[in-house]
């Protein structure tokens, strides 16, 4: 039996096709999100990769910021519940999830069965989100996937505000014009993201294992900065961008099984 989870975020679209609730047949990501062609394209890609059609899916659940706009879905579940489900499936020892996506930062505390015990989200502000890193990457003329490498060469991280993306951007421009090395600025940018995310994690109560997911988890500079701030190791979920879609696909499987019982 196949089930599908579709996660439409603000800046990327993800689909997971699951066989019998355990085998990931397809896990596709396209780096454009809700309101774009991303949702359709990623759906087509996942089906094509799996050699399946929508009719083969026993159930489809949508999640993410654009969850309400997915016509193919039978149901919508919030990304917080889906992240918890997906991460717990991959890392059963997880207690705290830090999820940094395009425009949201979330800290989620799990109970012993992987259920959501508490969660906190960022305020309506881009500071500390993937969008914040996008803006910095553009100003610094460094690709997002190179930022971790730059960070690893930092000798003296710069101070970058975590209050506001616009203020932080002008700080970065000012540091660039003062000749501060990009490596040090990028380390400062990563610390800024970490301090925002850790503020939410502290509210949840920090407890190991701490697992990071969401697109920003692919930036190891941010992961290192969060680990340093929390003074604890941080595990990056395997394929961290698809964990919510995976959770949605698992929910879909559980609902079909439950309905068949």
């Amino acid at each position: 039996m196949f089930t599908m989870g579709i996660d439409i975020g603000s800046s990327s679209s993800k689909v997971v096709i699951l066989e019998d609730g355990v085998n990931i047949i397809a896990g596709e990501v396209i780096q454009i999100g809700t309101g774009s062609t991303g949702p359709k394209r990623v759906l087509d890609e996942a089906l094509s990769k799996a050699g399946l059609t929508l009719q083969d899916m026993a159930k489809i659940i949508a999640t993410g910021y654009g969850r309400s706009s997915v016509e193919e879905a039978h149901k919508q579940i919030s990304e917080i519940s889906c992240q918890a489900k997906g991460v717990f499936f991959l890392v059963p020892s997880a207690k705290i999830i830090i999820d940094i996506g395009g425009q949201d930062v979330k800290a989620i505390r799990l109970d012993s069965k992987g259920g959501v015990k508490q969660f906190f989200m960022n305020d309506k502000c881009a500071a500390g989100t993937g969008r914040f890193l996008d803006v910095m990457s553009r100003v610094l003329e460094v690709n997002l996937d190179e930022m971790a490498e730059y960070d690893s060469r930092a000798t003296e991280p710069a101070t970058v505000s975590s209050t506001c993306t616009v203020f932080a951007e002008s700080e970065v421009i000012s540091q660039l014009s003062n000749g501060v090395a990009k490596e040090n600025i990028i380390a400062g940018v990563h610390q800024s993201v970490a301090s925002k995310a850790c503020g939410l994690a502290y509210r949840c109560g920090v407890e190991e294992d701490i697992v990071m997911c969401g697109g920003v988890a692919k930036d190891l500079g941010v992961v290192r900065a969060i680990s340093k701030e929390l003074k604890k190791p941080v595990i990056v979920a395997p394929n961290p961008q698809i964990t919510a879609a995976l959770g949605a696909a698992i929910f879909a499987f559980e609902e079909v099984i439950g309905a068949n019982k």
């Binding site: 910021y65 919508q76 579940i77 919030s78 990304e79 917080i80 519940s81 949201d104 259920g115 959501v116 015990k117 508490q118 969660f119 906190f120 989200m121 305020d123 309506k124």
Partner: peptide, 25 residues
């Protein structure tokens, strides 16, 4: 559940996500 109140806002997606997640929780 913590939700933010802002009279100026016109977009409620974050509130929707928080409330739906809380309901599921």
């Amino acid at each position: 559940l913590f939700i933010e109140i802002d009279l100026e806002t016109t977009s409620f997606e974050q509130t929707k996500t928080r409330v739906q997640s809380f309901s599921e929780m």
